[in-house]
C-alpha cells in the first residue's frame, strides 16, 4: 500500500496580489507571469522503505511541494493522503500528521534554540506528549543515528560546527520517528565527507524504521546513489515520476530543462558509443568501476 500519496496538488503564492496584477496588467502580455503557479498538478506516491529523489532547477517548486507534504502549505487544489487519510480533512488534526511526516527544511540549523543539544532534539518528542523515559530513549537513538557523540549532548547547539548543527537538526526530526522523512536539500553547503555521513544517517534511519524518504537535492550523483525513483520538476510542472533508468534514458528531455544525467553516466555513454562497453545504464561510480574492471580484465589478461 502507498504510505504517502500526493494527488493533483497545485499551489500558487500571493493569490490576492496576482488578482490585482491581472486586472491592471491584462493589457500588456504578461499573462505567463501572472498565472504561474509555484507547483502545478503534481501527483506521486511513495511506499515503505522507498526513496524518492526530487530534482529540478532552482525555483521549480521543490521546497513548495515539500511543505505541502506535511500540511505547512495547504494546496489550492488536490490533496495529500497518508495511509489513505486525507491530511487536510480536519484542520485541528493536521498537526498530528507532522509527527508522522517529518520535514527537514533547507538549512535546518537555523531552527535550533535550546540550551543543549539534547534538549533541542527533544523538542519534537515533547510536543508529541511522550513521557520522559520515552523521550530520552528516542533522543539518544536519533543522535546516535546522525553520529553525534555523547560528549556533545550537553553542549550548546550554537557552539557546534555547521555540519554538526545540521546533523542535530536532522536528529530533531528523526526523534519523532516519522514514517515518511521529507528532506529539502539536506546536504547543501556541506563538504563531501559531511554529505556522505548525512546521507548514510538518512539511509540507516530508513532501513531501521522501514520509513519512506523523499529527498530534494541538486546533486544528481547523490540522488542516483540512494533513490529508487525520481520526481523531476520544471517550473512547477511534473516532468517525470519514474525509475532512474526511465528518467535517465530520456537524456534530451532532461537537458532541455537544464538538468543532465550523472557525470559518471556521461562517461559510460561515451564509452558505449566507442563500443568499449555494452551497458550505459549506470548511475553510480561504484557500478561503473565494476563494469569497467570486469570488461577490461578479460581484454588485458590474454
Amino acid at each position: 500500500m502507498n504510505l504517502l500519496e500526493v494527488k493533483n496538488v497545485s499551489f500558487s503564492y500571493n493569490k490576492a496580489a496576482n488578482k490585482k496584477e491581472r486586472k491592471t496588467k491584462n493589457k500588456t502580455d504578461n499573462n505567463k507571469y501572472i498565472t504561474k503557479a509555484a507547483i502545478n498538478n503534481i501527483s506521486f506516491s511513495v511506499k515503505n522503505n522507498e526513496v524518492i529523489g526530487v530534482i529540478g532547477h532552482t525555483g521549480s517548486g521543490k521546497s513548495t511541494l515539500m511543505q505541502t507534504l506535511n500540511g505547512l502549505i495547504k494546496p489550492d487544489s488536490g490533496t495529500v493522503y497518508f495511509k489513505g487519510n486525507n491530511i487536510f480533512l480536519n484542520k485541528k488534526e493536521l498537526y498530528k500528521f507532522r509527527f508522522k511526516i517529518g520535514l527537514v527544511f533547507q538549512y535546518p540549523e537555523y531552527q535550533l534554540f535550546e540550551e543543549t543539544v539534547f534538549k533541542d532534539v527533544s523538542f519534537g518528542p515533547k510536543n508529541m506528549g511522550l513521557d520522559e523515559e520515552n523521550i530520552n530513549k528516542r533522543v539518544t537513538e536519533a543522535l546516535n543515528i546522525v553520529g553525534i557523540k555523547k560528549d556533545l549532548f550537553s553542549k550548546s547547539p550554537f557552539d557546534l560546527s555547521g555540519g554538526q548543527k545540521r546533523r542535530v537538526a536532522l536528529a530533531g526530526i528523526l526523534a519523532m520517528k516519522p514514517e515518511v522523512l521529507v528532506l529539502d536539500e539536506p546536504t547543501a553547503g556541506l563538504d563531501p565527507v559531511g554529505r556522505k555521513m548525512l546521507l548514510n544517517s538518512i539511509i540507516n534511519y530508513k532501513n531501521q524504521n522501514d520509513a519512506a524518504v523523499i529527498i530534494v537535492s541538486h546533486s544528481m550523483e547523490d540522488l542516483a546513489k540512494i533513490s529508487d525513483k525520481l520526481l523531476v520538476l520544471n517550473e512547477g510542472n511534473q516532468v517525470a515520476f519514474d525509475t532512474l533508468n526511465n528518467v535517465f534514458k530520456n537524456r534530451e528531455r532532461l537537458q532541455s530543462i537544464g538538468l543532465d544525467v550523472p557525470e559518471v553516466t556521461k562517461i559510460m555513454i561515451a564509452l558505449k558509443e566507442k563500443g568499449l562497453i555494452n551497458n550505459d545504464e549506470v548511475y553510480t561510480v561504484k557500478e561503473a568501476a565494476d563494469i569497467i574492471t570486469n570488461t577490461f580484465r578479460g581484454c588485458c589478461n590474454d
Binding site: 507532522r98 519534537g124 510536543n127
Partner: peptide
C-alpha cells in the same frame, strides 16, 4: 521572511 521560515520549521516539529 526569516520569521516565516523559523515558524514553519518549528511547526514541522509539532510546535503549536
Amino acid at each position: 521572511e526569516e520569521t516565516d521560515k523559523i515558524m514553519s520549521s518549528q511547526k514541522a516539529r509539532g510546535a503549536s
